[in-house]
Design a protein around this nucleic acid. Structure first.
Length: 809
DNA sequence: TATTTTCCATTTTTT
DNA sequence: ATGGAAAATA
């Protein structure tokens, strides 16, 4: 309800204004003049333009502390939004540390989404939801859309659910409800987009569910349509802070503008040069327009960089200068000297990986007057995740420890989602999407036919699928083996449900859950009969899910069981299953313990906000980086975002930044010749050192363009192919036909293939890039059966193995 | 209903 | 090349 009592509705403040005002302000002395200006400008709109490595978080934290210290606001009157949980966590920690005393939390410091969930639970009924709504993940969303597409007799081959999900997401990012989608979008999804969007929203409401986009959209709708609610929050949130403002989308922007509309005490922190999320709805325009949106805004620029050498900053600056319409910022540092940005070309992608592997090994020892680096100090930042494979393969074979950051997240793994679907279903038996996910997992002999029967019965009786299944069983619609298994499942769900606390109905003033106890909603705080961890184990065991993986003999099965154990362990920190599910829906975190020093491999996007003493930036080739697709789809806008990505990449480096490119690369299985990235031409020559090909035991042969001319001109195709390096390479490769691609385009001759096949004999010892060493057991045409020492018996295509004596370096 | 075969797309990713 | 998902088949 919108009529809430402010004293009860918000978590209490812990420090009185008077006590705070008297506190000393040592933190101010640690700031440079720009940072200090940004911290002390407390009232009215402020835009803090914080370049990479300029102490943004420090200033932001100090600002919060200063607000508290000067008695301007209580901890619970400050709204501080971030994009990631990690950033939120970090800020909480740092505020606590700087304050030197535990503040009783900052309840409104969190991600956009987390804060929106909190708001939406309080006002759900204003958009037709109950406050215990569930938050769908992408899987559920797709499943639901698939159903809608099918129900509308649309060919999902031509019009896939994924695409519709993307369109709807895009609309929600712009805060367009089905009614407000502009006419220009009417053609979307074969002209049915808007209509399907409306159906989807209706369906979500029926399911008492939201997707991620809704969290923001619904709150914006509420604030727009209910002035009383808006006014109360405007009064409550005395100060607003926003991190990474350049990443906000339209919905987030509207949300902020609504809430800040009264007092306008809003401080946005960001860097227009680091806006790299345009493809998921971020609008650089938001930050570029700040002064127009908030007239009289103070703009503070943080330009002193504490992270990188002057060469690295100059190189980054040289690249980003190519962008139009920047707010303008020039990073500088007091640090002098240091290594220039290094540039090297390679023959192909594997060669590049090989060279970087060797370079890392020598950096560990310390070479050429450079200090020794720890593996943790080194990162490889790629444009696209598929580039990682070359490095993983190579590092695996040379035994160099690495870690991939931002791979598939724990909570996105199949077994975890399955388990969670069981939990969801136990907590809320109406969760039809969860039911669909697990009816036949493990296999219960319930195929399409049985599932359709359940759907039909459920629809006929206007109930959820679980109830529908029960009715169908009672009617005798599903018999036999499948029927028995379904009966067991349905009974199990009911039994497990009885063992939980009921679903969360609402939150009271302490944010404690008010529990719906089933038939008659009543508050029940009593201890459940058994811990939710025990319950979770019971669910997984009795449903047969654990057994399914125990009986599975694929190599990944043990890992999956391990993950399930971890999942149950993760439950420990929560009150009950419902609390856990809420947490997981919002926090797809994945920081598992790290053991030992490792090189980090990640995408440029994942690297934002991080820093490393030594950074490798491979794959700087036109089409790959800048990405062809980006340029095709959004033209100059896309190219500029790619350029910002380059800027982000370079500015991650503290001491050594090594950029590289390859002349040939396998793209979707086809060899393609590549040209060096246009961004390479934009690097200021005087801050770049072109590494000459080492030439030791066939190490890196520079694709001669940069070695020839430096970097002031664009290397033309002719330069690459007529270069000494190219010719030398061709000679070398023809001497070793089976181990190296010998031609740039896909025109590998059959002669070579035949050679490769006929050159092997049973019993021969061979080497495979991925599986290592092994002995040939049999030959079938161009396929070999090989018993690998580490990987076991595998069938491989002959041209991917080489004689063991012939291993390329 | 379960397994095998074919087909297809294929940057970036948080919440 | 490759993995995932739909279609074809046992």
């Amino acid at each position: 309800m919108s009529s809430f009592d402010e004293h009860d509705a918000f978590e209490g403040a812990s420090l009185s204004a008077r006590a705070m005002a008297a506190r000393p302000q040592p933190y101010l002395d640690e700031l440079n003049p720009a940072q200090r200006a940004a911290v002390e400008a407390l009232d009215g709109p402020v835009l803090m333009l914080a370049g990479a490595g300029t102490g943004k978080t420090k200033a932001l934290t100090a600002r919060i502390v200063h607000l508290l210290n000067t008695g301007r606001a209580q901890p619970n009157e400050i709204l501080a939004v971030t994009f990631t949980n990690k950033a939120a966590r970090e800020m909480k920690e740092r505020v606590g540390r700087m304050l030197g005393q535990a503040v009783e939390g900052m309840p409104w410091l969190g991600t956009f989404h987390a804060i929106c969930v909190k708001l939406l639970r309080r006002h759900a009924e204003l958009v037709g939801l109950k406050s215990n709504f569930t938050i769908l993940d992408t899987d559920d969303q797709i499943r639901l859309l698939k159903q809608l597409i099918a129900a509308n007799n649309i060919d999902d081959k031509r019009w896939p659910a994924r695409q519709l999900a993307g369109i709807i997401d895009h609309w929600k990012n712009r805060a367009w409800t089905p009614e407000n989608v502009p006419g220009a979008e009417a053609n979307a999804f074969n002209g049915r987009g808007i209509e399907l969007y409306a159906q989807y929203q209706t369906r979500l409401r029926e399911l008492n569910a939201t997707d991620f986009g809704d969290l923001l959209l619904h709150v914006v709708t509420i604030l727009q349509q209910h002035d009383d609610v808006l006014q109360q929050y405007r009064r409550w949130f005395k100060y607003i802070l926003v991190d990474e403002y350049q990443d906000t989308n339209v919905a987030q922007y509207l949300w902020l503008r609504l809430l800040a509309g009264g007092h306008k005490n809003i401080c946005c922190v960001g860097d227009d040069d680091q806006s790299i999320y345009g493809w998921r709805g971020a609008e650089v325009g938001n930050i570029l327009r700040f002064e127009k949106d908030f007239p009289g805004a103070q703009v503070v620029r943080l330009e002193q960089n504490y992270r990188s050498t002057e060469h690295i900053l100059a190189a980054a600056g040289g690249v980003i200068r190519g962008n139009q319409g920047r707010l303008g910022k020039e990073l500088w540092t007091e640090a002098q000297g240091g290594e220039k940005v290094r540039l090297i070309g390679h023959w192909d992608g594997e060669e590049e990986a090989r060279w970087i592997g060797e370079e890392i090994e020598s950096m560990q020892r310390g070479t050429r007057g450079m200090r020794a680096f720890d593996l943790d100090d080194i990162a490889i930042l790629v444009r696209a995740s598929h580039q990682m494979r070359a490095f993983e393969d190579r590092f695996l074979t040379i035994g160099l420890p690495y870690r991939v950051i931002g791979g598939p997240r724990f909570y996105e793994r199949m077994e975890i989602r399955d388990a969670m679907a069981y939990f969801r279903l136990v907590v809320s038996p109406e969760d039809d999407l969860a039911f669909e996910r697990i009816v036949n997992t493990p296999k219960r002999g319930l195929g399409d036919k049985a599932q359709q029967t359940i759907q039909a019965v459920a629809r006929a009786h206007g109930v959820g699928l679980v109830d529908g299944a029960r009715i169908a069983l009672d009617n005798g619609d599903i018999k036999g083996k499948g029927g028995a298994a379904l009966r067991q499942l349905v009974d199990g769900l009911a039994r497990w449900h009885g063992m939980t606390r009921g679903p969360v109905l609402a939150f009271d003033e302490n944010d404690d859950a008010v529990i719906d106890d089933g038939a008659a909603p009543q508050v029940r705080y009593g201890e459940p009969d058994l811990s939710h961890m025990e319950l979770a184990e019971i669910i997984l065991d009795e449903s047969g899910y654990t057994a399914m993986w125990q009986n599975d003999k694929t190599p990944e099965a043990p890992g999956r069981l391990e993950n399930l154990k971890e999942l149950v362990k993760a439950l420990e920190q929560f009150e009950n299953l419902a609390g856990f599910l809420e947490h997981v829906a919002l926090i797809m975190d994945n920081d598992k313990g790290d053991d030992g020093a490792k090189v980090s491999i990640m995408t440029l996007h994942a690297a934002k906000g991080l820093e490393f003493p030594a950074v490798f930036l491979p794959g700087w080739e036109d089409g790959l980086f800048p990405s062809q697709r980006s340029m095709d789809e959004t033209g100059l806008k896309g190219l500029e975002e790619e350029r910002r990505l380059a800027y982000v990449g370079i500015t991650r480096a503290e001491e050594i930044c090594t950029i590289s490119f390859a002349g040939n690369r396998r793209v979707f299985g086809q060899w393609q010749s590549q040209l060096p990235s246009r961004f390479i031409d934009e690097l200021p020559e005087e801050h770049v050192e072109v590494l000459t090909p080492p030439g030791l035991y066939g190490g890196g042969y520079g694709a001669a363009a940069p070695a020839r001319s430096g970097i002031e001109t664009r290397a033309s195709e002719a330069d690459v192919y007529n270069s000494p390096g190219w010719k030398r390479m061709q000679e070398r490769s023809s001497a070793r036909p089976a181990s190296q691609p010998s031609q740039s385009r896909g025109a590998r001759s059959t002669v070579l293939d035949l050679e490769a096949v006929s050159s092997h004999t049973v019993g021969e010892r061979v080497f495979h890039q991925k599986f290592g060493y092994g002995a040939i057991l049999g030959i079938e045409g161009d396929k070999l059966e090989v018993d690998f020492e580490k990987a076991g018996v595998k069938k491989v295509v002959a041209r991917f193995v080489t004689g063991a004596d012939d291993v390329p370096f």
